[in-house]
Write a protein that binds this DNA or RNA. Sequence first.
DNA 1: GGCATATAGTTAGTTATGCAACTAACCAAA
DNA 2: TTTGGTTAGTTGCATAACTAACTATATGCC
Lengths: 146, 146
Amino acid sequence: MPNNQFKRGELYSFMTGKASTAIARRLQKNFKQSGIEITVEQWSVLYHLWKQDGMSQQELCNATFRDKPSITRLVDNLEKLKLVKRVASKDDRRMNMIYLTEEALKLETQTMEVANITLNEALEGVSTENIAICKEVLQLVYDNLK
Amino acid sequence: MPNNQFKRGELYSFMTGKASTAIARRLQKNFKQSGIEITVEQWSVLYHLWKQDGMSQQELCNATFRDKPSITRLVDNLEKLKLVKRVASKDDRRMNMIYLTEEALKLETQTMEVANITLNEALEGVSTENIAICKEVLQLVYDNLK
DNA sequence: GGCATATAGTTAGTTATGCAACTAACCAAA
DNA sequence: TTTGGTTAGTTGCATAACTAACTATATGCC
């Protein structure tokens, strides 16, 4: 059990996720400054749809690590913003396939640029090796708990 | 600029903070299973008060990386639960000093035990060196953006 | 003392999250 | 085909977050 001797402070910094909160806040701020009027949560949904358009809500739940009500409401808001459309599946009428609108397609390049800038701000001064190790640890933590 | 060549997937896993979300959810679940009826956010405030009782709300903002309205409402809810008390400072009447109640003092040992168990679940299979590197990276990210 | 400014905290409005309960559609076994 | 269980999505309720605007107190400069 090599992990039993963790001290409180270490524990706490892991628990709270200050780093990811800080990244999300900065991304939101950078979106705003670029005149992009979406939330980072909405962006995280669009992100997966840019990779693969026409996902079901359940697939978006898995992809974004959110529960079903969260996705329902995010899709609600994205629909209000005319960025996505719900289309009932022909094969299985329980399912909504979520499709990007023209306007959402246009957002991809611009938002990804802002996201990359934000990430570079965040990772300034961090070595490539350590970033890789950090990613690996976070992935393991996620796998341990999901 | 060693960080410019990041690929989307890497970027995204950093952005979303799935690992910290997963830890927070697991901690909440473990609290519930132990019969502890507080939220992880409330716990994070109590955590700092256990270290130093009688902090002001502004100090709690800095410590927990939350804004003032968030702390106002967390303290509201903690007061409703009779876990803390607001006491107006004599030196500066703008300030509320937040004090733990007897009941909150009793919660420390039990919740810290649950938190330690949760952390061990999360970090199972991760080497001590890599945990240290990961912490270091997250701290740097936080410092870059805060 | 009096006025401008800064700081501590609150309130209001919108968005997001988690949980539980619900509806609708699908599916498989009797 | 009917019944019972499962899956996809929605709704209601409570908590929490960010922004902006607000009140009240303190401070510093004239």
